[in-house]
Write a protein that binds this DNA or RNA. Structure first.
Lengths: 192, 192
DNA sequence: GCACTATATGTAAGTATTGACATATGGTAC
DNA sequence: GTACCATATGTCAATACTTACATATAGTGC
């Protein structure tokens, strides 16, 4: 079973979904840290069904093309549950921006500062979006958030990871931009 | 040019290295966030040489097999410099542990807590190693660390990213382990 | 009617990465 | 001497993922 397979099972364990639905949820990697295109999802669904982890039924629709709604099976649920508590294999972190930082000594300071400031801003914006969702969850799901057996708790946990990630990334970008470029370019301030 | 190509150029911009040397540096992803096996590095070096970004000379050795030492060319240096200040393409973050967290509601709390505590510990250990290196850098490279034009500064910057990453990751693991399992299992303490 | 969009499902070719296979030199331990 | 390890350089098959190609339904705007 591939990691993508477990990602799909993780979504189907909560609700029945079509390949198209799964694709939408995997796009923005909202709430959880995996993503895939539809060209990877459809073949994977076929493999999952082959292995008996999911089943599908065709749902006819009036104003849209028919769809296949996939549901997780008991076998799938069991496999997913077991996978959760298996220690994950070490996979190398690859981060292109950090790799750029490794060669930043070659670049013009101002130009580099612009890049890292811009990236930092993106992460701050993502952080703000995540924090808004967190507030919403804390209002709407209050009781669930102290119940580790609830899917809402698990969604909150992955969001929490996202928040910590974005906060740290933004912090580093700001620090580095400051170190290589100094001066934030606001017209009317700074030298030259 | 691939990202791996720039990773290699980033190392060669600092010193001439053999394919074997590059492999060693790419293994532990020490100090910077990329990794590759020798089976990917050797063909990439050939492509880089084809494109005129690097050259190699054979160095004969007494007690070891001969080696090819690669050096970056002016063309390579220019390409690397330009790449540093190009905004990086958005690549989706894929994190298997966070994906597991998304389905943690299905698992036994104690079992899950063990997994996340163990992962948290790994990140704390990595953090400790990074912090030791940082201390060493701050002692040895004092002046360089305020010069963005120095390669030492760039190494320090990537290490700084590593520290922030590990700190945040460890924090999240501890939080989640606590939330799903409570109780740290020290014999003589806790219920059951 | 025509262009465009969202929904819906697929396939195929190419790139990136991993894991296994393959070979050679020269040192150390037994 | 032979087994094993570090050094050193490669290839190849398989997997994971992306990008592009391909098709169909039905609604909206012009």
């Amino acid at each position: 079973m591939t990691t993508l397979g477990y990602a799909i099972l993780g979504l189907l364990a909560r609700e029945g979904l079509s390949g198209y639905d799964l694709t939408q949820r995997m796009k923005g990697r909202v709430g959880y840290f995996w993503s895939a295109r539809h060209s990877q999802i459809y073949p994977e669904l076929a493999r999952l069904e082959d292995g008996g982890f999911v089943t599908h039924s065709v749902v006819e629709q009036r104003d849209r093309p028919d769809k296949k709604v996939y549901e997780i099976t008991d076998v799938g649920l069991e496999a997913l549950k077991d996978w959760v508590t298996e220690p994950p294999p070490e996979k190398p972190t690859r981060d292109e921006l950090t790799l750029k930082a490794y060669s930043v000594w070659l670049a013009d300071g101002e130009e580099a500062a612009r890049v890292f400031r811009a990236e930092g801003l993106k992460h701050e914006e993502q952080l703000a979006r995540y924090e808004e969702i967190r507030s919403w969850m804390e209002d709407e799901w209050r009781e669930d958030l102290s119940s580790p057996g609830s899917p809402h708790f698990a969604s909150y946990a992955t969001l929490q990871r996202g928040i910590i990630h974005e906060r740290g990334y933004a912090e580093w970008c700001r620090w580095l931009a400051e170190a290589v470029g100094g001066e934030i370019s606001i017209s009317g301030r700074g030298e030259a």
